[in-house]
Write a protein that binds this DNA or RNA. Structure first.
Lengths: 132, 132
DNA sequence: CTGAATCCGATCAGATACTG
DNA sequence: CAGTATCTGATCGGATTCAG
């Protein structure tokens, strides 16, 4: 059974890979995390997500909407008002994403130590090669 | 408590974001999934992962090694033999990744339907605009 | 306010050639 | 076998401008 689950990873063009690439992109995780709390407007999202450009937020939201993870609601008022909300499907994804973020939170110190050790080892090797 | 966990997502430069970008990249997930089964050699990984170039596999493995997720072992024989194995830290990450892949497997049909509906709706709107 | 469209520099990643 | 180095086309993404 486990073997069946992991069969996917040998094929480049399979559906799972496409979806993984989508939900693993830079801003999608953040958008989903924020919308899980509550419905938000475009400008609210832009203000909350530090570093995102207007263009990339728009692109990200369109992708999420297309995949059925986010619902876009246009209110016919002036000035325009557009609300973004997580769909039920998006909510189930959020549960999975949450475990990923929690793991990162718990292990970031461990990883920082590993990086320092690696960098120190590489630097030491380069000194050996530089002065033979 | 939930609020603390999700505090991270408003800052672009925080450690968690860097780590997420790393483990969410195109090939890392596949490498970790394969190495969880058993230790593998460079060429074995390359053959198993459809579509990866030699360069990108090397880069991915160096990143994972630096983060302490993968261990690289060089055997001083000819021809050269290099084994890659998941570290204990990498193994804990695999558990999290697995839930992500399982979610994708379970919902890929749902997403495919949503995409079709979205594309059809966009196409219909464009027809309305094209022939007024 | 919420976008769409365009331009353009930066980065990424594949192909190729070379090495121990 | 297991890489490194280099070149180059492709893609990404930010800044800017315009529109409903």
């Amino acid at each position: 059974m486990d073997d069946d689950v992991w069969q996917w990873d040998t094929r480049a063009d399979c559906e799972v890979r496409q979806i993984l690439d989508r939900i693993a992109d830079k801003w999608s995780l953040l958008v989903i995390a924020l919308l899980e709390r509550r419905t938000m407007r475009f400008t609210e999202l832009r203000r909350e997500i530090d570093g995102v450009s207007q263009r990339m937020l728009t692109v990200t939201l369109r992708h999420l909407e297309r995949d059925g993870l986010v619902e876009r609601t246009v209110h016919p008022v002036v000035p325009p008002r557009v609300d973004y909300a997580l769909t039920p499907l998006g909510a189930t994804l959020h549960e999975v994403i949450k475990s990923l973020v929690v793991w990162t939170e718990e292990h970031q110190n461990h990883i920082a130590v590993a990086r320092s050790a690696y960098d120190a080892r590489i630097a030491a090797e380069e000194r050996l090669l530089g002065a033979p």
